[in-house]
């Protein structure tokens, strides 16, 4: 299975080739006029030009920075809520009511209403990102904390740990892998939320750039930016995976099973 290992190592270029190839095929078939569905070389040229004048990099930094800061904030808040829920059944129920009600609301629905109250700046982004990104870490956190085995807890108690110590030293580490699954999911959501907010109400970042290029009828640039957004997802997932390996490496090692 030598080729399989190579295929796995080269999976990013393979995926890129597949995607670009499929795009080029649709282009070659001519289903849609070239004006609206430009070829990959055209898109690449346009993207290269944006890369050279520096606009795309600064916009990318803004968007990616926002998504990352938002993700960290939302993850911390979500885990904090999960811990509060673990400590008090009443608050747990109360927070659950709120999450049930807020979760089904799409960010795109919030943005137009929220701009009137929060303006078009940082407050808006913070609000939108946290509102949609907080739930996966929170829900996974609650489930994971509740799922810590009674054997582990009793062992901890036997060692005379206080409730706080039990939380920090037994429960949280045991729950961390599941929490990270939630954070990974949240990473995607936070990126989407930032771009949606930028497209609907922003004044900078990749989302706004897409909007602006579309209004200048620069279709190749628009698609170039769209590919960049997709690439962001791969990047953000990679970062979260790295962090997970750093924080919960022991768990991954233990989970590696012989084939």
């Amino acid at each position: 299975m030598n080729w399989a290992i190579w295929a796995e190592r080269l999976r990013v270029p393979i995926c890129a080739a597949l995607l670009l190839g499929a795009w080029q095929l649709v282009y070659a078939l001519g289903v849609v006029p070239e004006k609206y569905f430009p070829s990959i070389p055209t898109i690449a040229t346009a993207f290269w030009a944006m890369l050279n004048d520096g606009t795309v990099l600064s916009a990318w930094a803004v968007t990616f920075g926002r998504a990352t800061v938002g993700l960290i904030g939302a993850a911390l808040l979500g885990v904090a809520l999960a811990i509060i829920s673990d400590l008090s059944p009443v608050l747990s129920r109360g927070i659950r009511y709120i999450s049930d009600v807020l979760q089904p609301i799409p960010p795109a629905a919030f943005v137009p209403m929220a701009v009137f109250m929060l303006g078009l700046g940082t407050k808006l982004y913070a609000f939108v990102i946290i509102l949609v990104t907080i739930w996966p870490p929170y829900l996974n956190g609650v489930a994971a904390l509740a799922g810590v085995g009674s054997v582990q807890l009793n062992t901890g108690r036997m060692f005379g740990l206080t409730n706080w110590q039990l939380l920090w030293q037994v429960k949280l580490p045991a729950a961390l892998p599941e929490i990270f699954t939630g954070i990974r999911y949240a990473a995607t959501i936070s990126l989407i939320a930032v771009i949606v907010a930028e497209m609907l109400a922003g004044r900078d970042g990749i989302g706004f750039m897409i909007f602006k290029k579309a209004f200048a009828l620069r279709t190749p640039e628009v698609f170039g930016l769209m590919f960049l957004v997709g690439l962001n997802g791969v990047l953000l997932n990679g970062l979260v995976n790295l962090l997970r390996q750093g924080l919960t490496g022991w768990h991954i090692k233990m989970m590696e099973r012989p084939e």
């Binding site: 137009p112 701009v115 009137f116 109250m117 929060l118 303006g119 078009l120 700046g121 497209m199 609907l200 109400a201 922003g202 004044r203 706004f208 909007f211 602006k212």
Partner: peptide, 18 residues
């Protein structure tokens, strides 16, 4: 100068004090 995406967003920017 603050470029925004449409007329209602401009009004929103004024209404929110932005």
């Amino acid at each position: 100068f603050i470029a925004v995406q449409g007329g209602p967003a401009v009004v929103a920017a004024i209404a929110s004090g932005e």
